[in-house]
């Protein structure tokens, strides 16, 4: 690894050959704490670092000033030249040992309590509302990049790098999971912050099921699996200007979500359906989701006695 000058991080292990480049666990030689190093290669032309990289990393740094509890800390950034055409940008994040995927796997049967799920969801939505109010969308939310500290604190990781990564991904053959992708992305229509709400809905269901809700093998298969649950949308809801026709899919009706997520309570099911809404404009926002009755009703809470 080429290092920045006075780069005080000592790699300990490779923790992922991830879709977006190699991730290393490293030790901060000054504090002794572990960090996660992410290297992103960006093309540099004759005008230096691309404007998109400069702006996106600057935005991440700006978010850092707010010190949000549900967003992973970005501790350091540096740029090192690899060649005339390429610069390596190294992002140094705080290291959290566990992601939501392993957290769910490690939970003893019968899985997480409904209170625990509610708490995780509240934190997840808090982090998202913060990102969205700063005009940052995650675009690739999944259990692997939702970190859970040993104290049970949720921290979102890997956000706001979509454009930098897509630059990088052109260079690396990668397989990206489709399971948390919303219909508008699968249909290659326009998309915005509601994409993250869809993914959050998928993850919400997965917390109860302990397995993913929609496991498609291709874009079309993924859409088919989605419609088996939420039903084929009406003709007028289908986005205009997309190449995939609605006629490719069987006219299936929506099935009760409790068929797929039997453990969920009534308000939880209502919130879940508002997140898994086909039309991104009608999908609930992170701020509104936090106001949802699901988070106010105390029927599943063990706080009952104190109220």
């Amino acid at each position: 690894m080429a290092h920045c000058t006075s780069f005080p991080y000592e790699p300990v292990a490779e923790i992922g050959g991830g879709a977006y480049g190699t991730v290393y666990k490293a030790r901060d030689t000054e504090s002794g704490k572990f960090v996660a190093l992410k290297n992103v290669r960006v093309q540099t032309d004759q005008n230096g670092l691309p404007v998109s990289t400069v702006r996106e990393v600057a935005l991440l740094k700006r978010l850092e000033q707010f010190d949000h509890p549900n967003v992973v800390r970005l501790m350091d950034v540096c740029a090192t030249p690899r060649s005339d055409q390429e610069t390596k940008v190294t992002l140094v994040f705080e290291h959290v040992d566990q992601d939501l995927k392993t957290y769910l796997e490690k939970a003893p049967a019968p899985g997480l309590s409904s209170d625990r799920i509610k708490d995780l969801m509240r934190q997840l939505l808090c982090g998202l509302a913060f990102l969205h109010s700063n005009q940052v969308m995650h675009r690739d939310l999944k259990p692997e990049n939702i970190l859970v500290t040993s104290q049970g604190q949720v921290k979102l990781a890997d956000f706001g790098l979509a454009k930098i990564y897509s630059c990088h991904m052109a260079l690396t053959p990668v397989v990206v999971t489709l399971w948390y992708r919303p219909p508008e992305v699968l249909l290659q229509s326009t998309y915005a912050t509601p994409v993250d709400i869809w993914s959050t809905g998928c993850i919400f269901a997965e917390m109860f099921r302990r397995k993913p809700l929609f496991c498609g093998e291709s874009e079309m298969d993924q859409l088919g699996k989605i419609f088996e649950v939420i039903g084929l949308p009406q003709e007028e809801e289908w986005p205009t200007g997309v190449t995939v026709s609605r006629k490719n899919f069987p006219a299936v009706k929506a099935r009760p979500i409790t068929d797929f997520v039997p453990e969920i309570n009534e308000q939880g099911a209502k919130l879940l359906m508002q997140m898994l809404t086909f039309d991104p404009l009608k999908r609930i926002s992170a701020l509104n989701a936090l106001e949802h009755l699901y988070f106010q009703d105390e029927e599943t809470s063990n706080q009952d006695e104190t109220l």
Binding site: Q46, G48, L49, V57, L59, K61, E64, C78, A79, T80
Partner: peptide
Amino acid sequence: TKHQLLRMERKVLSSLKFDLS
């Protein structure tokens, strides 16, 4: 030279940790 300018760009970005706000 252009090269010097781009090298200075990287130096500044790294020293400011990309914090341009």
